[in-house]
Design a protein around this nucleic acid. Sequence first.
DNA 1: TGTTGACGCGTTACAGTATAACATATATAC
DNA 2: GTATATATGTTATACTGTAACGCGTCAACA
Lengths: 170, 170
Amino acid sequence: MPHDHNACPDCGLPDLAFAVHDHAHCAAQVLARAEALAQDAGARMTPVRRRVLEILLENHKALGAYDVLQRLAAEGFGNQPPVAYRALEFLVEHGFVHRIRRLNAFAACMHPGEDHAPAFLICKTCDLVAEAPAAPVRTALEAAAQAVGFSIERSNIEALGQCPACRGAA
Amino acid sequence: MPHDHNACPDCGLPDLAFAVHDHAHCAAQVLARAEALAQDAGARMTPVRRRVLEILLENHKALGAYDVLQRLAAEGFGNQPPVAYRALEFLVEHGFVHRIRRLNAFAACMHPGEDHAPAFLICKTCDLVAEAPAAPVRTALEAAAQAVGFSIERSNIEALGQCPACRGAA
DNA sequence: TGTTGACGCGTTACAGTATAACATATATAC
DNA sequence: GTATATATGTTATACTGTAACGCGTCAACA
Ligand SMILES: [Zn+2]
Ligand SMILES: [Zn+2]
Ligand SMILES: [Zn+2]
Ligand SMILES: [Zn+2]
């Protein structure tokens, strides 16, 4: 039986993105897991790729490709768009990063290796992005598709609103 | 009691986008309804706006803003991006057009005035875009958000895959 | 009826996002 | 150690979206 999707597998804290938590720990765990998974898959976690993941792991926000690129350039990596886009593409393909279409941006996956397809909750006030467990949502979506004979390959479910903290402040 | 969301309110054909149907009739109905709704709302359906809606109603596909613009320019309207974007913005705001984020494109709403928030089924083979009734999906999404204290304001649910016809052909 | 203010449209200019194509360097496979 | 595949850097360009200004039109109102 899998553990609660929305909890840190190590410290057990629920609701990671929106709750206060030891994010250094959170990020380190995810990075280590991603490294191991890449190793297992025979994928090469090169310096640029690792660095991009680290940058995205700095907080639970989504960054545009050009934001990432700016960081990379400042650290001596290439300074042209493909440098960022290629690293991001690799990370997305391997499930280490999610693409948030509504924001034209990318966010580190907080549950790498769990083969999930979460719903993204985007706080319009603090910009935090959380991955919500979306199994029931996908089931309903799959049913809706099946009703008209459509077969789903990939899907994106994104919600814009307010996180608990920002709602409380308002 | 509302009629079946996925049926033509006039001819009753289900599964409009993917099923063969009299699309001229389909488009005319939707256009007429949109005109009436705009009238009721005190919104001005100007020539450019009407034309953009007509263009999007030509088939059940999504068009990029620049595709629309090209059509407009060829017909003597302005040929600069804001012309297309402004008309599209108006149509989206009034619920006559949906924005498909995954495609950076826009598709005519086939159920104007029904205050719906559908899931979009995008066929990667024939490019048709269908609106699937998504009430259960939204309910599940709402539940997932509520579980972490998040309040949703807007959301987009988009699925990429194959429509029945294209799946049959393969 | 003449003024005025809101709105829509056209245009210029620019900002932001993404990819194609080629050259170089690096790492794996044999 | 060479051949082969993979990754990186770079140039150039394509695609998507918006800010800001000026003009014309239409409706409200004095
Ligand atoms: Zn964290
Ligand atoms: Zn994830
Ligand atoms: Zn139709
Ligand atoms: Zn619709």
